[in-house]
Design a protein around this nucleic acid. Structure first.
Length: 582
RNA sequence: GCGGGUGUAGCUCAGCUGGAUAGAGUACCUGGCUACGAACCAGGUGGUCAGGGGUUCGAAUCCCUUCACCCGCACCA
C-alpha cells in the first residue's frame, strides 16, 4: 500500500514539474507514514511541507496542487489536507477486506519473497569453548537466530556461522589439566561433565603452580605446531564442550547445528597467508616487534595512528587475524552479499578496524556489506556490568532450568487437572519463551538489565501473553469444530475493533522487512504484542461463536484465524514455539 | 586525552531515522468472570524527553555545549 501511494505521489511530482510549479531537479524522498490518529486517515505524507521552500509555495496550497495531480486510484477513496500541509490518505475499506482474505489463504501470510535474494552470512552465538555458556551468550544466540530465521523466511540464502572460540592460550591450561588428570588415572569424561568447574580447577592449578603454568604454555605451542597427542586431547575437550552447546541450543530453540560450527581453529592454515598477503600489498608495518596495519582514521591515546595488530612479536596470531581469514572465506568461498556479526557492542572498534583492513586488502568486495550488529552489555540488577569471573556466574543452563521451574509452578496452579507430562511441556515452552522474549523485545543496542523477576513475570508484554492469545483462538476453533484454515466465507468488517485488528494484520509484511534490514527483532516483538492486544480487545468486544449472524461469525472466525496464524509465524521467526493449550 | 554509547513516567523499556495531543508494560487506584479461556479486558493517577543554546513551518529525534554514568583505545577474545 505504501508503495502504491508512493507511485501516486511520484506521478503527481512529474506533473507538477511539467507545469513548472516545482523545480525540475527536485528529487524528494517520499515518506509515507502510517497515521496514529484515525481522523488523519490511514496514511499521511509530508511532501508538500518538504517542497514548499524549493517551490516557493505556501505548503497548504502546494498540497492542494499535489492532490489535484494525483491520478485516480480505486484504493484511495479520499485525500485530505490537514495541519500545516499534510496530505492524508483514506484507504478503501474494501481493500482491507481483500488483503485479509488473501493473507488468510496464503501460506506466507502475504509476506513477499525477496525479489533479489542474497547470500547472507550470519556470525552469531560464537561462545568460547573453554567454558560453559553463560548469560553473556544469550543475546548473540537469540537475536542472531531470530534475524537468521527472518532473512531465511524472506527467501534469502542464510549461512549460519558459529565462530566458536576453540583456539588460543587458555587451551594450554585446559590441556595441561587434562594431562594431569590422566596421569592420576582419573577419568577425564567425568570431570568434563561440568565445564565451569573444570575451567576453575585448571585455572587454580595454573595460578598456584609455576610448573603447571609453564607446561600449559608449552602445550599451546605444541598444539599449534600440530602435536598429535595434543590435538587428540584438544578435540576431546571440544567435542564435549560443543555437545554442551548443542544441548543448550536445543533447549533454547536456537537453530544452530554442528554443521554451522566453524571455529577459529579452522582458519589456522590461513593465518600466515593473510599476513603474507597484507605484506605483499604493502599494508604491513613492523612496530615494536609486532606486524601491524596502521589506519589513519583511528588514533590511540597519544594521538598517533592506531595499529591493528596482525601478528604478535612472538609470532602468534590474534583474533583480528582469524577474523580477517574468516571474512575472506565468507567472501570467496561462501559468496556472501552481506556478512552480519551479532557481537557485543564493546567490540565495535575492533570491527571498524578489521572491516577497513579487509576492504583495503581486497579480502572483501566493495559490494559486500559488512555489518556489525552490536548489542548492549548484560548488566546485573545492581546496574553494573554483569561480570562472569566473579564466582557466582549464572550458567545459561541453570537460568533455563530456573525459568522452567517458575513456569511449572504457575502452569500447575492454573491447571490443577493437567497430566504431569503436559504440565512439563507447557512449563518448558512458557519458561524458555519468556527468557527469549525478555531479551528479543528490547532494542538490542541498549544495555540489557538481567533480572529473573522481570524475565519470568508472565503478565503484560511477555511471551505468555502472546501464547495465551494464540491458545484462545485455538480453543475457539476447537469449539467451532473447524480447522483454523477452514473458513471459506468472505470477510465483512463492520465493528471498530474488527477494523483495528485487520489493519494491524496487514502490516506483518512491513515489519518483516524492517527486522531483516536492520537486524532488530524487537520490531517484530512490538508488532506481535500490539497484535495480541488488539485481538484481546476484539475478543472482548466482539463475540465470535455467538455472533448475531452467520456472516459475522464466519468473518470473525477468519479474523481470529489469521491472527493466530500471524502470531504463530511471527513467534516462529523469533524462535518461539506456540502451544495449543496452556 | 581521543573516540563511541547511554540519559524518556516510581521501575523496565518503545518511539518507525524531522511530523500532528510523547507511548506501552509494571506498580498504584476504580470497574468487569453462573460469560467464545480473567496469564484477560475497560478506565484513572503518573513526564522540565538530563540541563542550556541553535537549525525551521515543526525537534525526544539533526548541530553545538555542559553535566552524569558506561564502554573502547598495542600484542586477551
Amino acid at each position: 500500500m505504501k508503495a502504491h501511494i508512493q507511485q501516486l505521489l511520484e506521478q503527481a511530482i512529474v506533473c507538477l514539474i511539467k507545469q513548472q510549479i516545482i523545480p525540475a531537479d527536485t528529487q524528494p524522498r517520499i515518506n509515507i507514514d502510517r497515521t496514529k490518529d484515525k481522523s488523519h486517515g490511514d496514511y499521511a505524507n509530508n511532501l508538500a511541507l518538504m517542497l514548499a521552500k524549493p517551490a516557493k509555495q505556501n505548503p497548504r496550497h502546494l498540497a492542494e496542487l499535489i492532490v489535484a495531480n494525483i491520478p485516480e486510484s480505486t484504493l484511495v477513496i479520499k485525500m485530505e489536507i490537514a495541519g500545516p500541509g499534510f496530505i492524508n490518505f483514506f484507504i478503501n475499506p474494501n481493500f482491507l477486506e481483500k488483503q485479509i482474505d488473501s493473507a488468510y489463504s496464503n501460506e506466507r501470510l502475504n509476506v513477499q519473497i525477496e525479489a533479489n535474494p542474497q547470500t547472507i552470512v550470519i556470525d552469531y552465538s560464537s561462545p568460547n569453548l573453554a567454558k560453559e555458556m553463560h548469560v553473556g551468550h544469550l543475546r548473540s544466540s537469540i537475536i542472531g537466530d531470530a534475524v537468521a530465521r527472518t532473512l531465511e523466511f524472506q527467501g534469502n540464502k542464510v549461512i549460519r556461522q558459529n565462530h566458536v572460540g576453540d583456539w588460543g592460550t587458555q587451551f594450554g591450561m585446559l590441556l595441561a589439566y587434562m594431562e594431569e588428570l590422566r596421569a592420576k588415572g582419573e577419568p577425564i569424561e567425568n570431570n568434563l561433565a561440568n565445564l565451569e568447574i573444570f575451567y576453575r580447577a585448571a585455572k587454580a592449578r595454573f595460578d598456584e603452580s609455576e610448573d603447571f603454568a609453564t607446561r600449559a604454555r608449552n602445550l599451546v605451542v605444541e598444539l599449534q605446531s600440530g602435536n598429535e597427542e595434543c590435538l587428540k586431547l584438544w578435540s576431546q575437550f571440544n567435542e564435549t564442550s560443543l555437545s554442551h552447546c548443542q544441548e543448550t541450543y536445543q533447549r533454547l530453540g536456537v537453530s544452530l547445528t554442528r554443521a554451522d560450527v566453524r571455529g577459529e581453529s579452522s582458519y589456522n592454515d590461513q593465518l600466515a597467508v593473510i599476513v603474507e598477503d597484507l605484506d605483499k600489498q604493502g599494508l604491513l608495518q613492523q612496530s615494536q616487534g609486532a606486524k601491524c596495519v596502521f589506519l589513519d582514521n583511528f588514533k590511540n591515546k597519544e594521538g598517533e595512528p592506531l595499529p591493528v595488530i596482525i601478528q604478535k612479536k612472538d609470532g602468534g596470531f590474534l583474533y583480528a587475524t582469524s577474523d580477517l581469514a574468516a571474512m575472506r572465506y565468507r567472501q570467496n568461498e561462501l559468496n556472501a552479499d552481506r556478512i552480519l556479526y551479532f557481537v557485543d557492542a564493546r567490540q565495535g572498534l575492533h570491527f571498524q578496524q578489521v572491516f577497513e583492513v579487509a576492504r583495503s586488502a581486497g579480502f572483501v568486495n566493495d559490494k559486500t556489506s559488512l555489518e556489525h550488529m552490536p548489542f548492549g552489555t548484560v548488566m546485573g540488577e545492581d546496574g553494573r556490568p554483569f561480570k562472569t569471573r566473579s564466582g557466582s556466574v549464572a550458567k545459561l543452563a541453570d537460568l533455563l532450568t530456573e525459568a522452567e521451574m517458575r513456569a511449572y509452578e504457575l502452569v500447575k496452579e492454573k491447571n490443577k487437572e493437567m497430566s504431569e507430562q503436559e504440565l512439563r511441556h507447557i512449563a518448558s515452552v512458557v519458561g524458555i519463551s519468556s527468557v527469549k522474549y525478555a531479551d528479543l523485545s528490547k532494542n538490542r543496542t541498549s544495555d540489557y538489565t538481567f533480572s529473573f523477576d522481570s524475565m519470568l513475570s508472565f503478565e503484560g508484554n511477555t511471551a505468555p501473553y502472546l501464547l495465551y492469545a494464540y491458545t484462545r483462538v485455538v480453543s475457539i476453533f476447537n469449539k467451532a469444530g473447524i480447522e483454523m484454515g477452514g473458513v471459506t466465507a468472505a470477510l465483512s468488517l463492520t465493528e471498530e475493533k474488527e477494523i483495528d485488528l485487520a489493519n494491524k494484520l496487514i502490516q506483518f509484511d512491513e515489519i518483516i522487512k524492517q527486522v531483516a534490514k536492520q537486524g532488530m527483532p524487537h520490531f517484530l516483538c512490538s508488532y506481535l504484542f500490539e497484535l495480541a492486544g488488539l485481538f484481546s480487545s476484539f475478543y472482548e468486544a466482539c463475540p465470535i461463536l455467538i455472533a448475531e449472524t452467520e456472516t459475522q461469525k464466519q468473518s470473525r472466525l477468519k479474523l481470529a484465524g489469521l491472527t493466530a496464524k500471524t502470531l504463530k509465524q511471527g513467534l516462529s521467526l523469533l524462535g518461539i514455539n506456540t502451544l495449543e493449550r496452556m
